[in-house]
Design a protein around this nucleic acid. Sequence first.
DNA 1: ATACATTAATCTATTTAATGGACTTAGTAT
DNA 2: ATACTAAGTCCATTAAATAGATTAATGTAT
Lengths: 161, 161
Amino acid sequence: MKWQDLAQQPCSVARTLAVIGDRWTLMILRDLFLGANRFEHFQQSLGIPRTTLSERLRLLEREGVVRKLPYQEKPTRYKYRLTAKGVDLYPVLITLVQWGDKYYAGEAGPPVVHHHKRCGHDFSAVLTCSECNGAISPFETEPRSGADYPGLLEQRANIKA
Amino acid sequence: MKWQDLAQQPCSVARTLAVIGDRWTLMILRDLFLGANRFEHFQQSLGIPRTTLSERLRLLEREGVVRKLPYQEKPTRYKYRLTAKGVDLYPVLITLVQWGDKYYAGEAGPPVVHHHKRCGHDFSAVLTCSECNGAISPFETEPRSGADYPGLLEQRANIKA
DNA sequence: ATACATTAATCTATTTAATGGACTTAGTAT
DNA sequence: ATACTAAGTCCATTAAATAGATTAATGTAT
């Protein structure tokens, strides 16, 4: 099965990965969250091949994750800015960072720390429940089929331990 | 620049993506969190080429994200189980799901909802600050260079708006 | 004027990775 | 004996990634 076909599945992970589930794309998003916004910035910061960068930016723009904005005339040149939809990927990037910090930081500690300007402390992000505000542990949650997808999980449930 | 070289960078995003930053790998992790654990499960559930699946599982095992456990003798056959390190990827998967739910669920609503057994409600996950417990907005945070990486961000800071 | 510099790409040839299908191995069931 | 299962591996084909050169539209320095 080809990759693209997976994106047609009724699965929010698959659909999300069809847009951003690529190493370079996620690195571009990292740079965007750190303030980079121009083609040359991404290219130099990441060493990404120009063709690949061009193709990825086009996809992100088509999907409304970034928007091209002119920053000068004659010749008109564009920078890339995260849209609201793009900014909504912040939790994905933060959770990726934290896993890397925990398992791959080594002796030197995390290369980047995250500061919460509101409270004035360096923080780590904690997943909490929208309903009870308690911290979420994967052992206390379970996936359930959505209203319009009866039996979706049951299909996978005939899985032996 | 090749992919692998990026993983050498002092960046927790890059290092994390070197392990799990691949579409198939993240889909395999999705299946693991839904309870799948055998080679044939992943292959049939995802339609992934067997060579690719084999290679990805080997990498996940090598990195300690999953562990191979025998589930029968004669012939000995193995299933895959998330390690503690693997379970720690739960926040990544949940945030990916939620972004997909928000932007790609369509009319029918999310295909899967997440239930918090502890409080008895379907929930969405909210990122909160470990220090003040407030919800985290990307507009109220800033990245700072880690103690042993002075100037790391400043290198990227000569970026014009 | 001419040459050089910038920026954002694109074009092309080469290298690398993904894909699909058949095959293997060790055992069980008919 | 034959068929079947599970977890892979092997191999030929196809697609994607990569590196390097080139382009286009300007502006700046000599």
